[in-house]
Amino acid sequence: MVPLSKNEIEILMSTLNKEQIYFLQHRTKQKKKSRWLQTLANDKGIDLNEKMSDQEMEEKLDDWILVEIKDGGYQKRPHKCDCGQALRFQYIIRNKAQGAVRYLGENCFENYLSLPASVIKDVKKGLYSIDLERDEILMKYKKNLFYPLDKYMHLPLPQDLLDQYERGLPLSDNQINLVERIHTRYEEERKLASLFQRLTIEQQQFVSKQNQEDRRELLLSIEEGHAESFLDIEDLSEFNETLLKQLHLNLPLLERQKQMIEEWQRTKKREKALYALTLEQQQFILTLSKEKQAALLDQIHKPLYFIYEEIKNLPLDDQIKKQVDLKLPLLKEQIYQIHLAQNKGECVTKRNAETKIAID
């Protein structure tokens, strides 16, 4: 969206009643102040709770507080910086400890606060987005574009959003997205509560002890019918009591638990494949890296593509030759190296033959 000019803003503001004008101006000012405090806190590594009021946030910061930003309008400079320069944008800041107030332009604003350029950029970007949202609300009001918030009044919506709606002001796209996210989360919570009630008492007791994310994943998996009853619990005796209890209660596994079991099963399969080999084959495999051991053992029942006599004279790594000699499978990159060596050998043989013919 293209930002509105000062004249356009004034014209659209004139179509609002006094309560709407006050609300929109006050909201814009408060959002800018909050954004400033949050950016400043992030730069200083101070954690701010999103539920904190501006006053509570200020108490955490012993620094300059943004009071207001005045915009004189396109190609106009009605404001003054403390240095005397005429300004379109005037940043008004107040020192919390000393009570001093400064009226600054962009350059003095950056220099006076001694903040990193990245922080100043974040501040400006945040304040610009707040102005754009105000302009969007004004344009929607002009076009009579109102979101049907009355359908969502049962949701735990932010109070400032409700106040905006009650004053007859439309919601911005960001606010609408927020409402829809809250609605989605609310509907999911209802579904999770319903799924929880379908469990046995013992299952409920187990699920209640899980963290929020695990509980959510587990309940949604129950809805999809992903029980793990096909797994043999005795085969998983090496795992912790929680997982065994979960399976005993016929509750689904979490994705990370499935991955853990799959990796454990692959490891067991590799161990079995290793101990089925000859001692010399085992000793060779154990000299390789863990990654190569796993890759090779996963290929152990694949057909052998080469015999030692075919490759013994090729310019290959000794490891590949040894592997073929021991009748062990090869990895893809090793097979590629053999094909490459064979092609080079054929080219050399062909050149030698052509040279011999030329000499004769």
Rank of each mutant, 00 (worst) to 15 (best):
D163P: 01
E68W: 05
F109K: 05
H226M: 12
H154F: 07
D131T: 07
E333D: 09
Q210T: 12
K292R: 13
L247D: 14
E50C: 13
M13R: 02
N95P: 08
T184E: 14
C81Q: 07
Q164W: 03
R216T: 13
E202C: 07
I93T: 04
L4R: 11
Q212N: 14
F306I: 01
E228H: 13
L243E: 00
K125C: 06
L220A: 04
A86N: 12
D47L: 12
C81Y: 11
T15Q: 10
E309F: 04
Q38C: 00
K268D: 03
R167V: 05
L169T: 02
A193Q: 03
K292G: 05
M139N: 14
Q197H: 00
M153Q: 01
E309T: 09
K272I: 12
K32M: 11
D71M: 10
L254Y: 05
R266W: 01
Y152Q: 00
E180S: 02
A86M: 10
Q337A: 15
L16G: 09
S237M: 04
A353F: 05
I137W: 06
R216S: 12
P315V: 00
E56S: 00
P252M: 02
N111T: 13
L279M: 04
L169E: 05
G168L: 08
S172W: 00
R94I: 03
L61R: 11
L171R: 08
I120A: 08
Q265V: 03
Q319S: 05
G73K: 06
Q293H: 07
D63H: 10
D122M: 00
K70A: 06
E58R: 15
M153E: 01
F146M: 09
K290S: 03
K327I: 00
K124W: 01
E189C: 02
P158Y: 03
W64Q: 02
E180C: 08
L236N: 08
Q246R: 13
E136A: 08
E333R: 11
V207Q: 10
L169C: 06
Q75A: 10
K80V: 02
M13H: 04
S129K: 15
A358D: 04
I320Q: 01
K292N: 14
Q323M: 12
E223V: 00
T184K: 13
Q98Y: 11
N107F: 08
L145Q: 11
H26Q: 13
G126S: 07
E228G: 14
M139Q: 15
K350Q: 12
K209D: 11
I69K: 09
G168A: 04
C108P: 10
N111C: 03
S14G: 09
P252A: 03
H339G: 04
G45S: 06
K76C: 09
L277P: 01
I201N: 01
Q204W: 07
Q246A: 08
K31R: 11
Q323A: 12
E241Y: 14
L12C: 09
R216N: 13
I69N: 06
M13F: 07
V2N: 11
I93K: 05
